[in-house]
Design a protein around this nucleic acid. Structure first.
Lengths: 116, 116
DNA sequence: GCGTGGTTACAAAAACATGCGTAATTTACT
DNA sequence: AGTAAATTACGCATGTTTTTGTAACCACGC
């Protein structure tokens, strides 16, 4: 039986941020409150199933907040918590690091291809 | 292995850092040069195969450097590149963020995420 | 035959996609 | 007026694909 909360905080962080979607969603949510359908439009390649699952994960981790409005058609809004907002500059720093550091090996080619 | 370059830098970064091992290996490599067997000892729960695969990934991403010495028994050493070293404070910042921001609710979150 | 750093083939698990169903109200069509 | 269809944010069942794990084997020199 594994440890539920690991000794290393980095392990815990990566349990939340790992994968294709979490940081991307952060990236879109930083612009402000978004509805489910907004996020779908922002990132058409995510399936609606993944979108719900990932949003729940972010919510449970205290990064995003989910607000549901009564009535039909359904309306649900998502935005970042204080904690989530603090995460943004850290994610950005990672992006910057990637772009500035060791450009040679990374920019193998200006390839178009599946842009998200 | 998938190509490391896409439209969004964050996507690229996470393609390298996602998963259980990359950041952990970073964490151990930051202490200095390590041999394959050192890393195995540092983190006994990683499988032999995963360790080689992850190390190759870090190498390919320009984060770690692999130095092989001729002769037997084989000797291979790993350490961080300049680029890799620059990544360390960013990873640390993520760890700090996790610990400082709403610590109580997160330990709960980490637990419930496992259940999912 | 042990220890080193690997590889290969195969199995298991996790991540992710696809398509259908649901709700109450509004719009559109006949 | 009456019916059909669209809307929204999901849940569920069932794929497919990707990642990770297991185990065995290789090379070599001592």
């Amino acid at each position: 039986m594994k440890d539920l909360v690991s000794a290393c905080p980095i392990e815990d962080v990566m349990r939340v941020l790992s994968g294709r979607w979490p940081t991307l969603l952060l990236y879109y949510l930083k612009d402000g409150t978004k509805r489910f359908s907004d996020l779908q439009r922002d990132n058409p390649s995510i399936s609606h199933r993944m979108l719900t699952l990932e949003l729940r994960k972010l919510e449970k981790a205290g990064i995003a907040r989910r607000t549901m409005f009564e009535g039909y058609p359904l309306r649900v809004e998502y935005d970042l918590t204080e904690t989530g907002l603090k995460l943004i500059p850290l994610i950005d720093a990672l992006g910057d690091w990637w772009q500035t550091a060791a450009p040679a090996s990374k920019k193998v080619a200006a390839r178009s291809l599946e842009a998200v």
